[in-house]
């Protein structure tokens, strides 16, 4: 590994570290949160790291200086619990989205995206909104409720060279299947690539299979504390 590769690897690890920290702290916009969860389902090392960060959250909770609740808070809670138990049978189950670590990336297609992404995106194989961008490259826009963040699924045919392009907003890309290589290195299933505003790159898809990626672009929208926070890692 030459020096530049080491730097790129460190940078990638840092980006992931920052994303996971923000995730644990609950500071991400929902599409980015889904991206991180899907990344975790594909990457055991990140799942392990997140486990540590959640433990850290537990430790920090213990260390919080207690602030008393209002008088009668426990009684109110017990009353609510008793009320809830009456109609517990009819109440709908809390949303359960199980992560499936070490997801089989080779089985991923646009019809079968990895979870939990698949819980938000239906089978896209026959979707009408696929749009051909250039030879070997198609895009399907994904709308997430309640946010203006632009999210897309891209399909890239094996071996396709995507023309040099720049990004208007910061773009975070998660590889779902296949892989690509650009100036900053090689990306495979579960890897996350970040393109800063104005950065140009020229990705080339691996030639051994279709490459499917999930990309989130903050565009021109000013977000509360989403990608910008991660980005602050990279600036400087």
């Amino acid at each position: 590994m030459n020096e530049q590769n080491i730097t790129e690897k460190t940078k990638k690890d840092e980006v992931i570290g920052a994303l996971l920290l923000d995730y644990a702290a609950g500071a991400l916009e929902s599409p980015l949160e889904i991206l991180v969860e899907t990344h975790i389902s594909l990457n055991a090392a990140s799942a392990k790291q997140l486990r540590m960060l959640m433990q850290l959250g537990g430790i920090l909770l213990e260390e919080c200086e207690p602030v008393s609740l209002s008088e009668g808070a426990l009684d109110a809670v017990m009353a609510e619990i008793a009320r809830g138990e009456v109609d517990e049978q009819t109440a709908k189950q809390d949303n359960v989205v199980a992560f499936t670590p070490s997801h089989e990336a080779k089985d991923v297609t646009v019809a079968h995206l990895p979870r939990p992404l698949a819980d938000y995106i239906p089978d896209l194989s026959c979707d009408k909104s696929w749009r051909k961008i250039s030879k070997g490259l198609s895009q399907c826009r994904i709308q997430f409720d309640g946010t203006d963040v632009e999210a897309n699924i891209y399909r890239i045919a094996p071996g396709t060279s995507i023309p040099v392009h720049s990004h208007e907003g910061t773009e975070v890309t998660l590889v779902l299947s296949g892989g690509f290589t650009d100036e900053t290195g090689a990306f495979g299933p579960g890897d996350i690539a970040i393109q800063e505003t104005g950065a140009t790159h020229k990705p080339v898809a691996d030639d051994d299979g279709e490459c499917i990626v999930f990309a989130i672009n903050e565009g021109n929208i000013r977000l509360a504390s989403p990608i910008g926070r991660v980005l602050s890692y990279l600036v400087n």
């Binding site: 609950g26 959250g57 537990g58 949303n95 938000y120």
Partner: peptide, 28 residues
């Protein structure tokens, strides 16, 4: 997970649920 980690997770999710307008169900 320890009780603290488990309860931290619940508190974290409760807060996000409240902040979030889109009501995206949080993963369990």
């Amino acid at each position: 997970a320890g009780a603290s980690t488990w309860i931290f997770t619940i508190a974290r999710n409760k807060r996000i649920d409240r902040l979030r307008k889109d009501g995206r169900p949080l993963p369990d």
